[in-house]
Amino acid sequence: MATYFDPKSWSLSGAVDVGRRLLDPSWIDQWLGFTTSWADPVADLGSGTVTALMPDVLMTVLSEGILSRFGGQEVSATLLGHDLTATLDVFKVRRRGAHFQSKTVLSDLVWDAHPFDSVTVIAHGVRLIPGVPTKIRVQQLDIEGVIGLEALVEWVDAQNFDWRVRLDERGRILASHRSKKMRALVDAQVYDNLLTIDVARANWHGIRLPRRAIKAPALLLDDLPNRASISYAHRRGDKVRFRIELPETTGSFDLAQIRTAIVAGTTLIVF
């Protein structure tokens, strides 16, 4: 049934009365309760409710809640002691047999002050273990991403290796030994944890060295943090594409903190 506005029946006092009712705190509380009702299962689980379906319920609530709250927006998180901010583009969770699999796509990621253009993380064999705090175990993480060459070179230079690296005016990688008077134009790539360095030109005390004298040996990266494995890392123009695999990882989170972070839009914490 249609209703129509009659200007003759309108009055200032009536409008004020409607405004008062709309701004009534109890009405606002009801509205907030309705719009965040998806988070109620998290509150129940946090208070000790345990059912056989708890992992499924909790994963559904968390994935839908995080995506609906942060999808397409900047999200802040503390993940296993590392601070990050990024725009959340995709967050999907689905059951794979006895465990779950999740896919997260982030853009404009800043991880501990290091900028990445984009990162895709697929978590295999995800398990939730009830308790206070709730534990999460992942059998394997596959991480693919793109980082700007300049940002990567700056990160490598900050590691205080024997060689300093920077980009020259033509976007080439220039390496200079910290104590010896040696300089070289180089490029590098990693495949299956094997780092190979291509030396285009090198000089010592300003004297150009012959190519046969500047061949760099390949280096096996077998001592990476968290037992990580680099499937590949190669340069394409001013970008570097990479894929990293991480073995089993364990973390914990507080359900109440996660619920508050989703509702209020604050930092998500996994420790």
Results as ranks from 00 to 15, higher is better:
238 D>S: 13
201 R>A: 14
140 Q>K: 09
98 A>Y: 01
194 L>C: 10
72 G>V: 10
211 R>A: 15
224 L>R: 03
231 S>P: 11
150 E>S: 15
118 S>R: 11
219 L>T: 15
113 A>I: 04
91 F>Q: 04
173 I>Y: 00
176 S>N: 11
107 S>H: 11
101 Q>A: 08
128 L>I: 15
10 W>I: 00
160 N>C: 02
138 V>P: 00
124 H>G: 01
238 D>K: 13
146 V>I: 10
40 D>F: 04
266 T>N: 08
227 R>Q: 14
143 I>M: 07
129 I>H: 07
215 K>D: 14
199 V>R: 09
228 A>C: 12
95 R>G: 03
155 W>K: 08
212 R>L: 13
41 P>F: 09
98 A>F: 03
147 I>D: 07
189 Q>V: 08
127 R>L: 02
176 S>I: 15
194 L>K: 14
223 D>I: 04
124 H>Y: 00
264 A>L: 12
202 A>W: 10
186 V>T: 03
113 A>W: 00
47 S>V: 07
229 S>N: 13
58 L>Y: 03
114 H>E: 06
203 N>L: 05
188 A>Q: 10
115 P>R: 05
188 A>G: 11
153 V>M: 07
207 I>W: 15
113 A>V: 08
64 E>Y: 06
84 L>P: 05
202 A>Y: 12
124 H>Q: 10
23 L>K: 09
50 V>N: 07
208 R>V: 15
265 G>W: 10
5 F>Y: 10
23 L>C: 06
228 A>D: 06
226 N>Q: 15
94 R>S: 10
41 P>L: 07
168 D>H: 06
62 L>R: 07
93 V>P: 01
195 L>V: 05
